[in-house]
């Protein structure tokens, strides 16, 4: 039921997000397949709100205008589950009621025999060096292992773009670099346009793509971002 992932650009057209009458963010940009756009800014500036809007989870206290396109199709009018955007959160959020393999199978689109699905999950585990972990309880995994499983779960769901919400901020320094490289590599390999939201300069540097710096409304007195 899913098309094979095709490399389409993620286009953010005249996006602006308001809370009450206050403008949080205005953005007009395009992310090419395999490109990683980094959005930087201090906390509270509305980075996560932007991701929530793109993914289809914007809380009703916000209002937004503008369109989001994946290639030629507009996705901003679709419900979250039809947008096919792979979302990685700060926490890996592995389901505690499923095994590691179950979590991966959860991401695999419907279809195929039980054995085929199982093999697919095993292969994904092998790809991240966790062969034989399928029956483990996610809680027995280390932080880095969990982050890798979460990544594979998203990729198995065959997204057409990636949205990364500070996914490395909770990892310790050594791990952070390793996971960062893994995520970026996977996204590029699949040709997925990727939007990374972070407040960590190192993330932006490692992403190697364009960077947009957001400033808080307060600092930008007189220059309302939505006024542009």
């Amino acid at each position: 039921m899913f098309d094979p992932p095709t490399p389409d650009a993620l286009i953010l057209e005249q996006i602006s997000i308001h809370q009450a009458e206050r403008c949080l963010i205005a953005l007009n940009t395009r992310i090419e397949p395999g490109e990683i756009l980094t959005i930087m800014g201090p906390s509270g500036v509305g980075k996560s709100t932007l991701l929530a809007f793109l993914a289809g989870f914007l809380a009703s206290t916000f209002s937004a205008s503008g369109q989001v396109w994946l290639g030629n199709s507009e996705i901003s009018a679709l419900p979250a589950e039809r947008r096919r955007l792979g979302l990685l959160f700060q926490d890996p959020l592995l389901f505690p009621h499923l095994s590691v393999g179950g979590n991966l199978a959860f991401g695999i689109p419907h279809g195929g025999s039980k054995r085929q699905r199982h093999a697919k999950a095993e292969q994904a585990l092998a790809d991240i060096g966790l062969t034989g972990f399928a029956n483990r309880n996610p809680e027995t995994l280390s932080g880095g292992q969990r982050a890798r499983v979460a990544l594979m779960r998203v990729l198995l769901a065959e997204p057409r773009a990636m949205l990364l919400d500070e996914p490395f901020s909770r990892l310790d320094a050594a791990l952070r670099e390793e996971i960062r490289q893994l995520v970026f590599k996977r996204a590029r390999d699949k040709g997925l346009p990727t939007l990374l939201v972070t407040h960590d300069q190192a993330d932006a540097k490692a992403a190697g793509g364009p960077v947009i710096e957001l400033t808080t409304h307060k600092n930008a007195a007189g220059s309302d971002p939505c006024g542009v």
Binding site: F2, R83, D91, F106
Partner: peptide, 17 residues
């Protein structure tokens, strides 16, 4: 039970509500 986050994870992977 982190319902909201669980729901987002599942929906972003294509699951209807």
């Amino acid at each position: 039970c982190q319902a909201s986050q669980r729901l987002k994870v599942a929906r972003s992977m294509g699951y209807s509500p």
